[in-house]
Amino acid sequence: MQIELTVNDKLVTWDVENDEFLADTLRAHGFLSVKKACDTSCCGLCTVWMDGKPILSCSILAMRAHGKKITTIEGVSQAAEEFARILTAEGAEQCGFCSPGFIMNVLAMKNELDNPTEDEIIHYLTGNLCRCTGYMGQLRAVKTYLGVA
């Protein structure tokens, strides 16, 4: 079927299969920042925004994006880079494979929560798994970024 959606502020018309998931559609159209790692909707690597809310693009049918506004990290490059600089200053990107999805959720959290506590930060980011860093460096980076350190 054909869907019309806005991807990173650009209106596009794409042909998608009925059972195609948004992450695959995005990758097929060159948004290679979108990673997949679990097949079971629980690792958070494929996080993008739908109408500003963070979602798992691997688990949302592409057709559901019809009429919606999808944002990938390519669409928020300035904010993403600002946070990525802090993250890499901690060394907390390590293999980097989970970083784009993680960064999208961090930016979503910044938009959604005011002055979150450490517990609220950890809770908001729980759906983003990382096997390299042990999470502590990511937390330091987030706190620095939000100015709650």
Binding site: S33, T88, S99, P100, I103
Partner: peptide
């Protein structure tokens, strides 16, 4: 010195760099 990884910014922001990419 704690120098950020030379590839850090690029991979963290999702530039194509891995096998599938």
């Amino acid at each position: 010195h704690s120098i950020p990884k030379i590839d850090g910014l690029s991979i963290a922001t999702g530039k194509p760099a891995y096998t599938e990419d």
